[in-house]
Design a protein around this nucleic acid. Structure first.
Lengths: 236, 236
DNA sequence: CGGTGTGAAAGTTTTCACAGCG
DNA sequence: CGCTGTGAAAACTTTCACACCG
């Protein structure tokens, strides 16, 4: 649901309609990333064809994707970068700040705590938990590592709705269970296991070895075949 | 300097023939992960229905996916875990060892160097490069950090075919260009930018902020159209 | 029986192509 | 003009349903 700007009803509210294919939403994130780069570079407008070409999509695909959420363009001109960025962030929900809890503060967890990219999209890791008593109280990136016993109370107190699981595979399900019990609404899971979650909890998995596996397949199996026109994005 | 747009959607061919949809290959990795867990737990056989249920897919989907690559099952019995694991690894290419080069050894790079999950799937990070002169020669996880000047020679000398880009966004394209010039065949890119690569170089992007963005959308909009209907998949 | 493998049907996503607008 | 927005067609993916097998 895009937000209407001032203006004549040009931008904004569209078919706040039925369900949107997941793949469309993933492309939205890519459009947004590209738009932010373009705007930082001083570009004011962009056409669907130009935006698509940057990512390997067709112009029609870009327009159709945006069409799920409303009308954002100006015929003969294209889209205004600033307006489209704002609309995309409204749709994706990142015009609002999000607090995130991290469970597991090992090497990877610590690296993620220091990752600047989250903040730029309005995500802040506001709490970090670990089972290792030796780590409790330690400061990482200015954040105090808390014991798991404090997880539920902290998540509720700090209005945390999203969680990241960065524990070893064997402990991922119990970490997920704790987060769910604390009322979390979505989880990014870096452990290489499939979590069992209630249907109201959203979940995105990131398996680092699987990313390499997919490459291994693609490299071994010379990929060919292609209908017409453009191609595919860079983000898997 | 690389040229060319991003890439197509279909991937090469299987043992039989015909091009395989990318989404099928990504499910293959999930099947393999599940099978390895089951085998470690002592399970000898599994049916398509059981395997699918563990991942939130239908039995038919599992059978169709496997059907792209051959016949692996026994009517009335299911699949033998050990045989199917071996077949999946043959298909994905992970029965062979892969050497991987890492470019950028910051916080995230160091964490990835220590990640045990790669080795289990036969990937070894055999070289690590960084632009920071202060880091050169430093040992991380037993690996000596090398200057970028040594990248091409090292990649050729050590039979490295895959690369991981873990540098800041501004330097990702030049890192990619160096890897391409050195003859790399595939890249996993952790920088939040779209790389421009020649079409013969495979590419998988992992944008950590985008994973959270996708969750943010899913949490605020409960209206995402899911391909398969059952439990809960995992990998995003 | 329980379960695979597979055409054919159903459903979904992408591409095409063109009216309409500034 | 150049470009959007959008039905309609094409292409692709998933589900169904059933022959067949041990």
């Amino acid at each position: 649901m895009a937000e209407s700007r001032p203006q004549p009803d040009h931008i904004g509210d569209g078919p706040s309609d039925a369900s949107v294919p997941k793949v469309v939403v993933s492309r939205l994130s890519l459009y947004l990333r590209e738009l932010q780069r373009l705007e930082a570079a001083g570009q004011e407008t962009i056409s669907s064809g130009q935006l698509g070409a940057l990512l390997g999509f067709s112009d029609a695909q870009v327009r159709k994707d945006l069409g799920f959420f409303g009308q954002f363009g100006y015929p003969g001109v294209g889209y205004r970068c600033d307006e489209l960025i704002r609309a995309m962030r409204d749709i994706l929900g990142t015009n609002q700040p999000w607090n995130v809890a991290m469970v597991g503060v090992g090497n990877l967890g610590q690296a993620l705590l220091g990752y600047r990219g989250f903040g730029r999209q309005n995500f802040t890791i506001t709490a970090a938990f670990d089972a290792d008593p030796g780590k409790i109280g330690e400061l990482v990136q200015g954040l105090r590592i808390q014991p798991l016993e404090e997880l539920a109370a902290t998540i509720r107190a700090r209005d945390i709705r999203l969680g990241m699981i960065v524990v070893p595979a064997e402990r991922a399900q119990e970490a997920a269970d704790s987060l769910v019990a604390a009322g979390i609404e979505g989880i990014v899971n870096f452990a290489p296991v499939t979590l069992v979650l209630p249907p109201h909890v959203q979940n995105v998995g990131v398996d680092l070895a699987i990313e390499l596996e997919q490459l291994s397949f693609a490299v071994t199996t010379k990929l060919v075949k292609q209908p017409t026109g453009a191609a595919e994005p860079a983000t898997g």
